[in-house]
Computed example of a mutant assay.
Amino acid sequence: MRMLGRLLAVGAGAAAARYALRQVRTSPAGPALERTNFRGRTVTLAAGPALAAGASGAAALGATSAAAGAAALVAGVGSGAVGLYDDVVGARPEQKAAKGFTGHLAALREGRVTAGLVKIVGVGAAGLGAAALLAVDPRVAAHRRRQRQGAFGRGVDVLLGAGVVAGTANLLNLLDLRPGRALKSGLLLGTPLTGGPHGGIAAGAVGAAAGLLPEDLDEQVMLGDSGANAFGALLGVALAARTGPLGRAGVLAVLAGLTAASEKVSFTQVIQRTPGLRELDSLGRRAD
C-alpha cells in the first residue's frame, strides 16, 4: 500500500505541474515571464510557479500527517512565492548590481533592500515555519528525543530543521544555471528520499520535477528562483522529517560548505572539468 501511495504522489505531482505550466503560460502574466537564457533563446519562467504549485500540492498529498503536509505547503509555496518575486522584481536594472549573499548585504548597508534579500529572508521564514510544524508531528524522527529536551534543545532542533530546508532550497537555486541541471540534481537527491515513513513528501516533489524535465532540457522553460527554491525546500522538508538533531546538523554543515564554495568556485566549471558529471549534466539536453 505504501508503494502505491508513493506512485500516486509521483503521478499527481507530474500531472499537477504540467497542468499548472499550461495555465501559467497562457495567462495574461505569461508574456512578462519570458526571458533569454544563456544561449540567447527565449524561454519562459512559467515552469517556476508551475513546479512550486504542483510539487507543493503533491507533497502535501503524499504526507502521512496533517502537520507534515502543512510543512510541505509552507516550505514549497512560501519559497516559490518569494522566488517568483525575485524573478520578476530582481530582473529590473537597478536590482542586478547586487550578486550573491554578500552583495545583498552590501546593498542593505547602503540602505537598499534588494529583491534577492527579500527572497533570502522569505525562504528562511518558510523553512522556520516548516520546521516548527514538523516539531509537533509525533511521526517525525526527532520528535521523541525533543520531548526529553528542554525548551532550548527543542528550539535548536527547530532552527537546524529550518536551516536544512532553506539550505537545500538555496543549493538547488545555485545549480539552476543550465537546462535540466537543477531538476536532475533534485531528482538524484529526492529519489532515495521517497522511501521511509515521510517518503511521500519527496515523491510528490520528484513527480512534479520529472513532469517538467523534458521542457527544461529542450530549453522551452526555465525554473528560475521560484521553481528551484520550491523544489529544494520540499526536499529539505523530506530530509528534516527523517533526521534527528545530529543528522540535521550534519546535513546543514554540508549545505553550508557547498554554499560557501559557490562564492569562490564556479559549479559550472567544476562540472565541465569532471568526467561523469559532465556527461550527466548534458544528458538529454538540446544540441547546440
Rank of each mutant, 00 (worst) to 15 (best):
residue 33 L to Q: 11
residue 135 A to K: 05
residue 120 I to L: 15
residue 67 A to G: 01
residue 166 A to E: 14
residue 221 V to G: 01
residue 121 V to E: 08
residue 44 T to R: 08
residue 284 G to V: 03
residue 215 E to K: 02
residue 252 L to T: 08
residue 138 P to R: 14
residue 54 G to R: 06
residue 74 V to Y: 15
residue 127 G to F: 13
residue 148 R to V: 02
residue 170 N to Q: 14
residue 274 T to P: 02
residue 272 Q to Y: 03
residue 2 R to V: 00
residue 160 L to R: 13
residue 99 K to V: 06
residue 218 D to F: 00
residue 23 Q to A: 12
residue 95 Q to S: 05
residue 197 P to W: 13
residue 179 P to G: 04
residue 145 R to W: 14
residue 177 L to E: 07
residue 130 A to S: 11
residue 12 A to N: 01
residue 257 G to T: 10
residue 26 T to Y: 11
residue 66 A to R: 14
residue 94 E to F: 01
residue 254 V to G: 13
residue 169 A to Y: 08
residue 129 G to W: 14
residue 261 A to P: 01
residue 59 A to E: 01
residue 74 V to S: 11
residue 102 T to G: 10
residue 199 G to S: 12
residue 220 Q to C: 04
residue 125 A to G: 11
residue 119 K to S: 07
residue 285 R to W: 01
residue 175 L to P: 04
residue 130 A to C: 10
residue 174 L to D: 05
residue 17 A to I: 05
residue 89 V to P: 03
residue 183 L to R: 01
residue 134 L to T: 05
residue 275 P to W: 03
residue 281 D to Y: 08
residue 252 L to A: 09
residue 203 A to L: 10
residue 104 H to D: 12
residue 70 A to L: 14
residue 129 G to I: 09
residue 172 L to S: 09
residue 55 A to E: 05
residue 16 A to K: 08
residue 85 Y to D: 02
residue 74 V to C: 11
residue 118 V to A: 15
residue 16 A to L: 15
residue 177 L to V: 10
residue 68 A to N: 06
residue 47 A to Q: 05
residue 82 V to K: 02
residue 163 G to T: 08
residue 33 L to R: 07
residue 171 L to E: 11
residue 95 Q to K: 01
residue 190 G to S: 11
residue 51 L to E: 07
residue 72 A to M: 09
residue 244 G to R: 13
residue 110 E to W: 12
residue 239 L to P: 02
residue 121 V to A: 15
residue 198 H to T: 07
residue 46 A to Y: 04
residue 203 A to I: 06
residue 183 L to I: 11
residue 210 A to H: 06
residue 196 G to V: 03
residue 280 L to N: 00
residue 142 A to S: 09
residue 193 L to E: 11
residue 54 G to F: 07
residue 157 D to G: 10
residue 172 L to R: 08
residue 81 A to P: 00
residue 185 S to D: 03
residue 269 Q to K: 15
residue 181 R to I: 02
residue 166 A to P: 06
residue 145 R to P: 02
residue 160 L to Y: 15
residue 186 G to M: 14
residue 171 L to K: 05
residue 70 A to D: 09
residue 140 V to E: 07
residue 205 A to G: 08
residue 110 E to S: 13
residue 271 I to R: 04
residue 236 G to E: 07
residue 207 G to N: 11
residue 281 D to P: 02
residue 232 G to T: 04
residue 145 R to V: 01
residue 87 D to P: 01
residue 161 G to F: 10
residue 61 L to E: 04
residue 199 G to K: 10
residue 109 R to A: 12
residue 239 L to S: 09
residue 230 A to M: 05
residue 128 L to P: 04
residue 148 R to N: 06
residue 188 L to W: 14
residue 189 L to Y: 10
residue 10 V to A: 13
residue 211 G to R: 10
residue 259 T to H: 15
residue 191 T to W: 14
residue 40 G to Y: 15
residue 76 G to V: 06
residue 7 L to G: 08
residue 125 A to K: 00
residue 105 L to W: 15
residue 263 E to W: 07
residue 148 R to S: 13
residue 235 L to E: 11
residue 91 A to R: 07
residue 180 G to M: 00
residue 286 R to G: 02
residue 83 G to I: 03
residue 99 K to R: 12
residue 6 R to D: 07
residue 152 F to G: 00
residue 24 V to N: 11
residue 201 I to M: 14
residue 205 A to V: 03
residue 183 L to H: 03
residue 226 S to Y: 02
residue 77 V to C: 15
residue 139 R to T: 07
residue 282 S to L: 06
residue 224 G to T: 06
